[in-house]
Design a protein around this nucleic acid. Structure first.
Lengths: 255, 255
DNA sequence: AAGTGGTCTAGACCACCGT
DNA sequence: CGGTGGTCTAGACCACTTG
């Protein structure tokens, strides 16, 4: 074992490129700065543009870069910590989330089959669908759809009543009157639907962190929300002191 | 507004392709089934292989497909729900997580600078680094690195003492003797490092859900763990009844 | 050895943003 | 309008698994 085999399994060009770029970002660029365009970068590194793009894609996925069509590629700020749940957090949507969420509107809609199963509604049955948007530091970071069966808010007039923001607030108000017995959440990776993408200023298919929350009341699932967060810019925080600063930096490891 | 403009903004081929394939998966394929190879699929749809691959990539990201080099593309089973925290969950690692986690070993190591900052250790200072692996339904789903400053486990012999599984268990045991005052977590999107990738049977750069947990004791951060979960196969659950079945299906939306 | 997915190339055109 | 990133092509070769 004398020969120092550096490249026993040669790593792909885009992978090496990513590492090089990553280090350059740490040392030679500051947040918001614009990188050279892709054609120039590719030429500079002696690779095809597609290969260069593969590296940039990875860095964007990791929240290090931000790319905008027609504009350019910029160095992204550290991800924002977005509080999804505090420690003793058992609350209805809109109950104590301050000005983080902005209620958009409410319409009757048929929920996706997976949601209908959880809610226990008949397939094809319409429920209240409340749309909300979450803004953090001036930028939209999440879009939410909250599905509420008519049976959870019986005081509300017929489900086909006029839609709109006022209606949305009414649904949330009625929901708050129920006793909240518990809730559970799940986080998974998804991709932006066309409508979410537009709202969040991303392209369709962009990676999203999908948070589904189920609200229990009186032994039943009273409501269910599906919130999609921009995966490139968000760090979801759960716990006692949400939002502690952790930013990445040189991450080389010593043995 | 009389003309029915179906393609006002023509959607990209790969996007349309993804939709078509997604519906085919729902109706014509069952879990574990092998799809035709990429060259055949591309020919069948009349697109270049790269375009077809872009669609497959998306579907893999969403956990619908599984691709393995040298083998083929198969229909993935629904994501497994992996409990990350229960409701009243304030526990040290290894305290009550049953047989979910498997302790691998412990070595002295210099933590990444971001971790060192949180732990309050000097840059370059070595800490205990415990490695654990999480297995669910026979498959490895996560790899964890737990960083424990020597000051948190003072009873332990010098940090350079023999490494290995026994050492790892000793670190966890000592940690458990401390009073746990709180913890908070964050979830964000990351990509697999080369070593994690190998351990989790993925390629480097594969998308991962990175869960960082900070453990507080006596007003200090006593330890910090960084766990990376396979984003394609995992749904992280938090809450009262972790692991409720929610599987995707036809998700078309009616107005 | 044959077949699979993964990487890479060189080029073209398109959609979008700013001026 | 010119410049940017986004999409797409047709082909080549490589790394890996399996028979």
């Amino acid at each position: 074992m004398g020969t120092t085999q550096v490249e026993a399994a040669p790593e792909p060009k885009y992978w090496h490129l990513k590492t090089v770029l990553s280090e350059a970002l740490d040392s030679e660029f500051s947040v918001g700065e614009i990188l050279p365009n892709e054609r120039d970068l590719a030429a500079r590194f002696g690779v095809a543009r597609a290969t260069l793009r593969q590296a940039l894609e990875q860095l964007e996925l990791e929240g290090r870069l931000q790319r905008r069509r027609g504009v350019g590629t910029t160095v992204a700020p550290p991800r924002v910590g977005v509080a999804v749940a505090s420690s003793a957090d058992q609350e209805w949507p809109g109950e104590a989330d301050g000005d983080a969420w902005q209620t958009v509107d409410s319409e009757p809609a048929v929920p996706p089959t997976a949601v209908a199963q959880v809610l226990g509604t008949a397939p094809g049955e319409r429920v209240h669908r409340v749309r909300r948007t979450r803004v953090s530091q001036g930028r939209p970071v999440a879009a939410e759809l909250l599905y509420v069966p008519a049976s959870s808010v019986p005081e509300l007039s017929a489900i086909d009543a006029p839609s709109g923001p006022a209606r949305a607030r009414a649904v949330l108000r009625e929901l708050r009157r129920l006793g909240l017995e518990g809730q559970d959440r799940a986080v998974e990776l998804g991709s932006a639907r066309a409508d979410d993408a537009k709202e969040l200023d991303r392209l369709p298919g962009a990676p999203m962190l999908v948070v589904t929350t189920r609200f229990y009341s009186e032994g039943e699932t009273a409501a269910m929300s599906v919130a999609t967060y921009r995966a490139d810019t968000c760090r979801l925080t759960f716990g006692d002191s949400g939002g502690v600063e952790i930013h990445h930096g040189p991450d080389r490891r010593a043995s």
